[in-house]
Design a protein around this nucleic acid. Structure first.
Length: 803
DNA sequence: AGCACGCCGACT
DNA sequence: GTCGGCGTGCTC
C-alpha cells in the first residue's frame, strides 16, 4: 500500500504529493486525512495523507516508508481534503497552507533540534557540563554561546554528541485528576485503622463516607473536605479511593449576557424567509440565500429557527460572525437557545481553548459552531446549513495566504453537503446583491423592524457650517445639545469615531512638515498615554518632538481627531458624563471587550466612545442617541469600496439607536454632506444607494462588473521594485486575453512600508480562462528567480481592498 | 523551506 | 595547511 502525502514544507517545488510506503502494521488503520510523520530528505516532517493507492510510477528504490501514524482518527475528512485542493487552486496558495489553515494552530507540528550526549565521559569541558546539568539530551536552542556551539560541533564530528530533530505537536490535551471514592463499608473499616491523632485523615474519610462511590475532581475534594493535598494523598495510599487522570476541556467562560431562550414569534416577513430556507435544507438543495434585512429586523431569530430545523434532521450548522469577541450578545443567544450543543471559535480564545472547541466539533459532541472566519472549516461531516452574518464584512477575507474568502468556501462546502447558505446583512456587499438581483442567489427581504420600532431619525450635520460659525470643537452644536438632553434623561449615548489614538498627525504650522515614519511612507499617530508617536504599519515609536524637525519652529501641533482626543474633549464639554472608550488600545487585554460592554450595559457609563468595533451587534435598550463624529474618514480612501464602506458603516452605527422601546436619534457629522453614501444613509434605504454605486462601479470598471486581481511587489531598492513590477506587468499583458485590462505598475497608496518600496498591478477581467494558469507562471518566475534578488510578490485574487 | 555537498578566501 | 563562507541541488 502506498500513501500520497502532502508534507509540511511551504515551498514551490514541494507543493505536490509525495509517495510513501505504508508499513504493514498501519495498513488496516491508516485513512486519508490522517497526519503522518515521514522522512523527507535528511529530516523528518509531518504530512497529511491525501490518497491511498496500490500502484505508483515511482521507482521502488526511491520510496521511503511512513515513520509514524499520528492520527488513528483522521483530522480532515475527505470533503475537507477536497476543499483544500479548491482553496489552493483558487487562491494560488500551497496545498499545505490550505490544509493547515483548516486546523487549530495548536495542532501544527513543532520542529526542534536536540543534542544528545552519547559518551558522557568524553566531555571534559566545564561549561558544557554545567549546561547539561547531568541531562543527556537538551534542545539545541538552549546553547546560546558561540564558543559552546563550536565545541558541540567538534563533539558531533567525533561522534560524542549527536544532533536529532524532534517533531512534536503543540497540542496538549488538558487532564484533570479524578478521585474515585470507595464504598462506605470499605471506608468504615479503613477508619478503624487510622490512629486517633491523625485528625485530618479522619476528617477526610468522614467526608468521603458522605460521598461514597462517587467520582470527583481532586481539587473539588480538597476544597469541599477542607484538608491539604498531602492528607488526600495519604488517604488514597491507604485505599480510601483510587485516582485517575481524565481528559477535560478548558473552559473559555460563557458570556454573562443572557437572553430569553424561547423562540420569538416571527413576523410575516421572517416566516416567509424561514420557510424558503427550511425548504432548501429539507430537500438537500445547495441554494445560496441573501437575507437582506434592515438593522433590527430580526435576522438572528431567522438564523436560530433555521438552525433548529436542521438540528431536528440530525444535521449540523456553521454560523460565521465577523469577529465574535465583538458580539458576546450574539454567542450568548446561540448558547441560550442550543445550550451545550454550541462550540464557539474566535480569536479571543487561547490556543488550548481553540483546540478544545475544535475537538468538540471533531468528535461531534456539538452540533452548532459559531465562529469567525476560520470556523468555516469546522470538521463537521453532515452540515445542514451555513450562515454568514454581516456577509459584507471584509474580515471574511483572509489577508495572508491562503487568501480565501469565507463566503466562497461556504458555497463550495454547501455544494459538498447539498445544503443552503444564508448570507445575512442590512447592507449587503455589492457583489452579493448583484448576484441576488441576477437570480444567482435567492433574495429574502426583511423590510420592517421586528418589534415594529421606528428607524432612528438621522440628521446629517454639515461641519463646514459649524466651522464658519466659529465652532472649532469636534462636536457640532446640534449633537452637543442632543447629548445634554440624553445625559439629563439618563439615557445612553454611543459616539463613533473611525480613528484611534489622539490625533491623526503632527504638523508644523510654519513649514507644513508632517512628522512621518522613518520606515514607511505614512504620517505618525500621536498617542497620549505615553506621549509618543506611533506608526500603525510597522510599529515604529518615537517621542513627540518639541520643535519641528525640519525648521525648528515651535509651532508644531496635533491635527485631526482620534478617540483619545475625543475623550478629552468630552470631559471638557460634559464634565459629569461617565465615558467608556473602546478601541484597539483599550481592548488589547483578553476579555476587555466583554468587560467594557458589560459595564455599559449595566449603566455604569453614559457615553460609549469607540472605533469600528462598536458599530456591530451592540443591542442595549437604553441607547437613544448615536453620534458619528467624522463620517468622512472612510470616504476619501483611495479604494473603490470607500463609498460602500462608508454607507455600510453609517447604516450599522445608526442601527444601534432605538432598538427597543425608546426612540432613537442619530447625528452624522461630515464635511461632505452631499456625498451619496452619506446622503442615502440618512434614510437607510439600501436600494437607491445600490443603484448609484453600481453606476459608478460600471463606469470605472470595478466589481461586480469586473473581477479584479491585485499583484503587489515590494523591495528594499526602489529601482529594483520598479524593474520587477514592470517585468511582471509586461508578462501579464502579453499572456492574458486582449479583453483583460492590466493596469500598472503603479506605486501603492502607501508607497513604502518597513523600508520596502511597494508597487502594484491590477488585473480587471470579466472572463479570463487563462487567469489561474498565467498567475501560476508568474508565481513560478518569482519563486525560481526573482525571490533570490530580494523581491517579495503577492497575488490576491478578489482582494478586499486595493489600497 | 531546510539541509548536504562542494568549491574558494583568511586564519590558527 | 584547515575553517567556514554561501552557491547549487534535492527532497517520495
Amino acid at each position: 500500500m502506498i500513501a500520497e502525502v502532502i508534507v509540511d514544507v511551504s515551498a514551490y517545488p514541494i507543493d505536490r504529493p509525495f509517495d510513501y510506503v505504508v508499513p504493514e502494521e498501519m495498513r488496516s488503520v491508516i485513512e486519508c486525512g490522517a497526519r503522518v510523520k515521514v522522512p523527507f530528505g535528511p529530516r523528518k516532517v509531518v504530512g497529511y495523507v491525501t490518497r491511498l493507492k496500490q500502484e505508483t510510477d515511482l521507482a521502488n528504490s526511491k520510496m521511503k516508508a511512513i515513520d509514524e501514524l499520528l492520527d488513528l482518527e483522521p483530522v480532515l475528512s475527505t470533503e475537507l481534503l477536497a476543499i483544500a485542493k479548491i482553496v489552493a487552486r483558487e487562491t494560488l496558495s500551497y496545498e499545505i497552507d490550505a490544509l493547515q489553515v483548516m486546523l487549530p494552530a495548536a495542532m501544527r507540528a513543532k520542529y526542534e533540534k536536540f543534542i544528545t550526549i552519547v559518551e558522557p565521559d568524553a566531555i571534559i569541558d566545564e561549561d558544557l557540563r554545567n549546561l547539561m546539568q547531568g541531562r543527556t539530551r537538551i534542545p539545541l536552542k538552549q546553547v546560546t554561546s558561540s564558543s559552546l556551539l563550536k565545541m558541540i560541533k567538534n563533539y558531533v564530528a567525533q561522534g560524542i554528541i549527536t544532533v536529532d530533530n524532534s517533531v512534536s505537536q503543540q497540542t496538549k490535551v488538558k487532564k484533570v485528576r479524578m478521585i474515585h471514592i470507595e464504598d462506605s463499608s470499605t471506608l468504615a473499616s479503613l477508619l478503624d485503622t487510622i490512629p486517633s491523632n491523625a485528625k485530618k485523615q479522619i476528617q477526610l474519610i468522614q467526608w468521603m463516607k458522605d460521598h461514597a462511590g462517587k467520582s470527583m475532581e481532586a481539587s473539588k475534594v480538597i476544597e469541599a473536605s477542607g484538608v491539604q493535598q498531602a492528607v488526600l494523598k495519604t488517604v488514597i495510599e491507604k485505599g480510601a479511593a483510587t485516582e485517575s487522570h481524565e481528559e477535560t476541556y478548558r473552559d473559555p467562560g460563557v458570556s454573562q449576557l443572557q437572553e430569553a431562550q424561547i423562540p420569538y414569534e416571527l413576523t410575516e416577513e421572517q416566516q416567509l424567509a424561514l420557510d424558503k430556507v427550511n425548504a432548501a435544507s429539507t430537500t438537500n438543495k445547495a441554494e445560496t440565500f441573501l437575507l437582506h434585512g434592515i438593522t433590527g429586523s430580526g435576522k438572528t431569530e431567522v438564523y436560530l429557527q433555521a438552525i433548529s430545523h436542521v438540528l431536528k434532521q440530525g444535521k449540523e450548522a456553521i454560523v460565521l460572525v465577523p469577529e465574535i469577541s465583538l458580539t458576546p450578545q450574539m454567542t450568548a443567544r446561540f448558547q441560550a437557545r442550543f445550550g451545550g450543543l454550541v462550540a464557539v471559535m474566535h480569536s479571543g480564545l487561547s490556543a488550548g481553548e481553540k483546540y478544545d472547541e475544535w475537538r468538540k466539533i471533531h468528535r461531534k459532541e456539538v452540533k452548532v459552531v459559531v465562529g469567525a472566519r476560520s470556523a468555516i472549516f469546522a470538521p463537521f461531516e453532515n452540515v445542514g446549513i451555513i450562515i454568514l452574518d454581516e456577509e459584507h464584512e471584509s474580515t471574511y477575507k483572509q489577508e495572508d495566504t491562503p487568501r480565501y474568502h469565507a463566503r466562497d468556501v461556504a458555497i463550495w462546502r454547501s455544494e459538498s453537503f447539498h445544503c443552503p447558505v444564508v448570507l445575512g446583512s442590512a447592507t449587503p456587499s455589492l457583489e452579493s446583491y448583484a448576484r441576488a438581483s441576477k437570480g444567482v442567489y435567492t433574495l429574502l427581504q426583511l423590510s420592517k423592524r421586528a418589534k415594529n420600532q421606528q428607524l432612528p431619525a438621522v440628521s446629517v450635520v454639515d461641519m463646514r457650517e459649524e466651522l464658519k460659525e466659529g465652532n472649532r470643537s469636534m462636536f457640532s452644536r446640534q449633537l452637543a445639545d442632543a447629548m445634554h438632553i440624553r445625559l439629563e434623561k439618563n439615557e445612553q449615548i454611543v459616539l463613533f469615531l473611525n480613528k484611534r489614538g489622539f490625533s491623526s498627525f503632527v504638523l508644523c504650522r510654519d513649514c507644513g512638515t508632517v512628522v512621518e515614519c522613518p520606515n514607511c511612507d505614512i504620517s505618525l499617530t500621536y498617542h497620549r498615554a505615553n506621549e509618543s508617536l506611533k506608526c500603525h504599519y510597522c510599529g515604529h515609536e518615537e517621542k513627540v518632538p518639541l520643535v519641528c524637525p525640519q525648521c525648528e519652529s515651535e509651532h508644531i501641533r496635533f491635527f485631526g481627531t482620534g478617540t483619545q482626543k475625543a475623550e478629552e474633549e468630552i470631559a471638557k464639554l460634559f464634565p459629569t458624563a461617565r465615558v467608556l472608550r473602546m478601541d484597539v488600545d483599550t481592548t488589547r487585554q483578553k476579555g476587555a471587550h466583554e468587560r467594557i460592554l458589560r459595564q455599559f450595559s449595566e449603566g455604569k457609563a453614559d457615553i460609549l466612545l469607540g472605533t469600528q468595533m462598536i458599530a456591530k451587534g451592540l443591542d442595549f435598550p437604553n441607547i437613544t442617541l448615536v453620534g458619528v463624529l467624522a463620517a468622512d474618514t472612510t470616504l476619501h480612501l483611495a479604494d473603490f469600496r470607500a463609498a460602500e464602506k462608508t454607507f455600510q458603516l453609517m447604516t450599522q452605527v445608526s442601527g444601534r439607536a432605538g432598538r427597543h422601546e425608546l426612540a432613537g436619534e442619530v447625528f452624522i457629522q461630515t464635511y461632505s454632506p452631499e456625498h451619496y453614501a452619506i446622503e442615502l444613509s440618512k434614510s437607510q434605504h439600501y436600494e437607491p444607494f445600490y443603484q448609484l454605486e453600481m453606476t459608478a462601479r460600471k463606469q470605472y470598471g470595478y466589481p461586480p462588473f469586473f473581477y479584479i486581481t491585485l499583484i503587489q511587489f515590494s523591495h528594499e531598492d526602489l529601482m529594483k521594485v520598479v524593474a520587477f513590477a514592470d517585468k511582471g506587468t509586461t508578462f501579464l499583458k502579453g499572456s492574458l486575453s486582449p479583453e483583460t485590462i492590466v493596469i500598472g505598475p503603479a506605486a501603492a497608496a502607501i508607497s513604502r512600508v518597513n523600508n520596502r518600496y511597494r508597487y502594484q498591478c491590477l488585473i480587471k477581467y470579466k472572463k479570463e480562462p487563462k487567469l489561474i494558469d498565467t498567475l501560476q507562471q508568474l508565481i513560478k518566475m518569482y519563486r525560481t528567480d526573482w525571490i533570490k534578488e530580494g523581491l517579495l510578490m503577492s497575488v490576491d485574487v478578489d482582494p478586499s481592498t486595493i489600497y
